[in-house]
Design a protein around this nucleic acid. Structure first.
Lengths: 129, 129
DNA sequence: GATCCACCTTACCATCATGGGAGGGTCAAG
DNA sequence: CTTGACCCTCCCATGATGGTAAGGTGGATC
């Protein structure tokens, strides 16, 4: 199948597929006589795997490792778990940072009258720490 | 004062100050005879304002608006509040997305044995939706 | 007055993953 | 043979920042 169908079946855009190939995340696709990339069901399977990993927020390099582990029958589940756990910590850290910002913003927004007058604790907080 | 001191006093790196000037977030600084940028206390005050807004996750364009409101004596607090509220919604949305991802990851990590055997529900979940 | 270090300047490249678009080739149906 | 939907490669843009290169400046010390 052509790249467009692989894209539709996998949820990975053609643009992304070409990109993944260019950075070596995917093996270069076989080509037809007209130089069109040609994909198999198996390729779509891999693309779906990548897509789900991206949806879980894994970056490209971790996905490289995931793919390598996935195709390695002698992998240890510990290696996979450790990769995912590290990623989870990263996410949790980002959530914590955003929560803090959200908390501050929520307080300020609540304190602000939101009327026609210029006085505003939000600007006040930005001006004076 | 030179850019380095303005950077130290405001918490905005020299690099960032030059960048903000280049994109028009800051007025071009006065220059000394040697073409060095020269800053006043007032400039540092503005830089601190920008820095705090960045720390609260505001993007550059919203900060442009915040600066404009800040310097406008006839602003309405409603305008500031609306800007902050929109930003807060954005943050809350991002948190929600990350929470969802974290929840999934946490479940998978818990289910994974993390031993020497290859069987791993994390890879399984990536493979089969 | 020479030297040295810390500072300043501009300019370009990298990040991270993706989309957009230009300019052009290919294929199948009408 | 034309049309439209594909496909190709290549380049640019994103957002905000850091890194680095190559060179000028300022003030202190020898």
């Amino acid at each position: 199948m052509n790249i467009g169908q692989a894209a539709r079946l996998s949820g990975v855009s053609s643009k992304r597929i070409r990109h993944y190939e260019s950075i070596g995340l995917l093996q270069p696709a076989r080509r037809t006589g007209a130089n069109y990339r040609s994909y198999s069901e198996r390729d779509v399977h891999v693309l779906r795997f990548i897509n789900r990993a991206r949806e879980l927020g894994f970056g490209i390099d971790p996905i490289r490792e995931l793919l390598s582990l996935w195709s390695n029958r002698r992998r240890s589940s510990a290696a996979v778990r450790s990769l995912a756990a590290r990623h989870l910590e990263d996410i949790d850290g980002r959530i914590a940072g955003l929560e803090e910002v959200a908390k501050t913003l929520r307080t300020l927004v609540k304190q602000c009258q939101g009327d026609d007058r210029p006085d505003c604790p939000i600007l006040g907080a930005l001006e004076h720490p």
